Amino acid sequence: MPTIIRFHQLGGPEVLRFEEVAPQEPANGEVRLRVQAAGLNRAEALFYRGQYLEKAKLPSRIGYEVAGVVAAVGEGVDSGWIGKKVATIPAFGMNQYGTLGEQAVVPAFALTEYPANLTPEQAAAAWMQYLTAYGALVFYGKVSAGDFVSIPAASSSVGLAAIQIVRDAGATAIAVTRTSAKKDELIALGAHQVIVSGEEDYTARMQEITGGKGTRLIFDPVAGPYVETLATGAAQDSILFIYGGLSMQPTPFPLMQSFRTGLSVRAYTLREITTKPERLAVAKKYVFDRLADGRFVPKIAKTFAYKDTVEAYRYLESNEQVGKVVIRVS
């Protein structure tokens, strides 16, 4: 029988368990995948720790992103999907549709075919990151040539996707990272400039890089007190997108800087794209086309065997990686 990953209590990666299950039959509007690879996300670590927006209903499956082959379809789903190589878009809750395991049942609307030039590992490492960055920077932010864009936590998979999106638009990607350990790699991966926030004066460096203009878009998953510092480097009529709360600290509103520059501070989640079919269709094509022609290339930090899933999540939580952590399932 196939195995899946599930947890019965909250805690660290050690709560994850391999469990044998019978093949699950997809219901109306669903498909069953034979999973080949899985991409890991920080949201999943928060989920099994009980710190995510969606609270786990125990016992719970886990996982948003997998690539695999459609093995069966439920009522109302085109049988032409069977046998196709697909990836999942994180357009569902993990309580209902956790994906990590040898099989996964997901809603058909969350499927996407991926370009033939991608491996299953790359396909499982693409959609969360590029769609998340697309929504803030392209759909809302209208990033364009001449813009300066500040990207904190730039070595994350979403941060690297943001760098590629900014470059593709002809704008300037300014990576922000805490230590100099990842600086050279960030430059190699496309950042035009890198600010080492733990070692440099962010405001002074931003003024130097932008010629005193400041950055029009800020794309931040950390939140917390550093938001006030990010605001000091903002341009007139700029937008600070906060798409996560990794600091786990209260986030002040930078009122005085907003008075000075007209800075807008906006919470943003991927659901703003995935729950709107017309938006999602445009976003999928945007990402697919750029994956297919090589403008976008997912960066895989490290690939783990399925049996080493717990160790893979430990590595994810170490913050050592640059790019996506991936599990090869079959």
Rank of each mutant, 00 (worst) to 15 (best):
P2F: 03
R6V: 12
P13M: 05
E14D: 15
L16V: 01
R17A: 14
R17V: 04
E20G: 10
E25S: 13
P26D: 09
G29T: 06
G29K: 05
V35A: 06
A37E: 12
R42M: 10
G50C: 11
P59G: 12
Y64A: 04
V66I: 08
A67H: 07
V70I: 05
V70N: 12
E75T: 10
G76V: 02
V77Y: 03
K84S: 07
A91P: 01
F92P: 07
Y97T: 11
T99C: 11
A104F: 05
T112I: 08
E113L: 10
Y114Q: 13
P115T: 09
P115W: 10
A116M: 05
P120Y: 12
E121L: 07
A124W: 02
A124I: 02
Q129F: 04
G135R: 11
A136V: 02
Y140I: 04
A145L: 04
D147W: 02
I151Y: 05
S155F: 01
L160S: 08
A161W: 02
A161H: 08
I163A: 09
I163G: 12
T179M: 02
S180I: 00
A181P: 01
E185P: 03
L186P: 02
G190T: 07
V194H: 10
D201G: 10
T203E: 15
A204F: 01
A204V: 01
G212Q: 10
A223W: 04
E228S: 14
T229P: 01
A231H: 13
T232Q: 15
T232H: 13
A234G: 13
A235F: 03
Q236G: 03
I239M: 08
I239G: 10
G245R: 10
S258D: 13
F259P: 03
R260G: 12
T261W: 05
R266E: 15
R271I: 02
A281K: 14
K284Y: 03
R290A: 13
L291R: 09
P298A: 10
Y306W: 10
K307F: 02
E311I: 00
A312L: 02
Y313R: 05
R314V: 01
N319T: 04
E320S: 11
G323F: 01
K324E: 14
V326L: 01
V329G: 12
V329N: 12
